[in-house]
Nucleic acid binder design. Structure first.
Lengths: 134, 134
DNA sequence: ATCAACTCGTTGACTATGCAACCTATTCCA
DNA sequence: TGGAATAGGTTGCATAGTCAACGAGTTGAT
């Protein structure tokens, strides 16, 4: 927990200072970018960002007000939506990415061996899956 | 990050529901309990809890208002303080601990092999040390 | 076909935490 | 030894996130 909290904070401080996307913002945009072109449902996005539904609503609000994403009605379910990356969002993501990854390296990955990265990835993925499904 | 966020949230929800100490509260009291009897300096405590100075001030405020800890003047440095676990704090910690550890097991450790626990511990400790020192 | 139970996303109210600025005490350099 | 720089802790203000309750839409059992 310490590692996650302290390194996320360090990365966000750097991002703020250089005008880049915050860690969680980058993560949401990247998830959208890698998803299907029609968009992703907020509930799915919440799971992948480890946010609650309401937390995700606020995050979406912020990103939408910056015109980085769009809310679209979901044709398959009138309650739901599809969140889509805007052209501007894609630009900002692309511009942010290189320094974002360097920041992850500096504040996290560079302190680990390749083997440790492998173990962490599979092990924590398992923990996250279990915790999210509750 | 997902694993840490989601499992901490799950544990805090359980703790709230059963009237136990929250994860971070337990961590602070346990750190005090394991430290020297004269107490621990807030700045040290902040590092061990991955909080900023101001975040720790607020956490201390809350625990003090519940009479679980005490602020004492620090004889060696008139600017500083020593935070000490109160008798009541020790009682509450002891009472909270068993279910706290079971909750950690359910929401985290049970999903990992022993080897994974070893790797995570040493690797993430290294990351946390590096991130905290900034 | 109906209606109860559930799901989706939002909102209000609240909490934890961050940063920057501040005051006080300490340290260190000239 | 005097004064600038630094460190310890608190505070004002801002923000992201939580939970519980809600309205609207969907599902499923009878």
């Amino acid at each position: 927990m310490r590692a996650g909290l302290a390194s996320t904070r360090a990365m966000d401080r750097e991002a703020e200072a250089t005008g880049r996307l915050l860690f969680s913002e980058h993560h949401i945009l990247a998830t959208l970018n890698e998803g299907p072109p029609q968009g992703i449902r907020p509930t799915d996005l919440a799971e992948r960002a480890a946010l609650t539904k309401s937390g995700l609503t606020r995050a979406i609000d912020r990103l939408e007000s910056q015109r980085l994403i769009e809310r679209r009605p979901c044709p398959a379910d009138a309650r739901g939506q599809l969140i889509v990356l805007s052209a501007e969002g894609r630009r900002v993501l692309r511009r942010s990415a290189p320094e974002h990854f360097r920041s992850i390296a500096r504040n996290f990955a560079d302190h680990l061996t390749d083997r440790e990265v492998d173990v962490l990835t599979t092990a924590l993925e398992r923990v996250a899956e279990a915790a999210v499904r509750r």
